[in-house]
């Protein structure tokens, strides 16, 4: 039987959810008997091929995030929004109180300890969206895994359920938004 293919990515997130994913520790070894990773920071594959499960950490703060999310939605049979930022914007959405220009000026011109103040303008840099958005505003999301980050046990539970062909569920004690 061929392995279940999983892709993961971090958009406007902090990679905390990926770190928590690794908190499955030695259970990852058992998991790897059943799954293989496609596009993911763990493999460094740059584009998502056809996959069974896509785990997306982080919300959408720039044009590239939207592009990557659409690629994931196109390629993954099951798309999971992982963590607070993917679900409601999270910490990056705190910038939604301000204009993009104000944020750039604070970060690159007037911020404490800024050296050689200038706003980056390299054409390769993706343009920022005017607001940070959760994933479900742009694509259909199949499952939500809340938490900041979701604990390793929650990753293990949702993946075990999916591998067993079950609808994934979490015990209430594991449901946390923080």
């Amino acid at each position: 039987m061929s392995k279940i293919r999983i892709a993961t990515t971090s958009l406007a997130g902090c990679f905390g959810c990926h770190m928590s994913f690794l908190d499955m520790d030695e259970r990852l070894v058992g998991l790897l008997e059943h799954v293989e990773f496609n596009r993911s920071p763990l493999t460094d594959i740059k584009h998502c091929g056809p996959c069974d499960i896509g785990l997306v950490e982080g919300g959408l703060c720039n044009a590239e995030n939207v592009h990557v999310l659409r690629e994931f939605r196109q390629q993954c049979k099951i798309l999971i929004a992982v963590g607070a930022c993917a679900i409601n914007g999270g910490v990056p959405a705190m910038r939604n109180h301000y204009e993009v220009q104000e944020c750039l000026e604070e970060a690159f011109l007037h911020g404490v300890g800024v050296d050689n103040p200038m706003i980056p303008s390299d054409p390769e840099l993706p343009l920022l969206l005017s607001k940070v958005h959760p994933l479900h505003e742009v694509v259909r999301v199949d499952y939500y895994l809340p938490g900041c980050p979701p604990p390793g046990d929650a990753f293990f539970t949702i993946l075990s359920d999916l591998l067993a062909g079950k609808e994934p569920s979490l015990p209430k004690a594991m449901l946390h938004y923080d």
């Binding site: 679900i87 409601n88 959405a93 109180h97 958005h133 959760p134 479900h136 999301v141």
Partner: peptide, 9 residues
């Protein structure tokens, strides 16, 4: 699990 609606911010 989610806010379901688009957030107002």
């Amino acid at each position: 699990l989610d806010g379901h609606f688009p957030p107002f911010y």
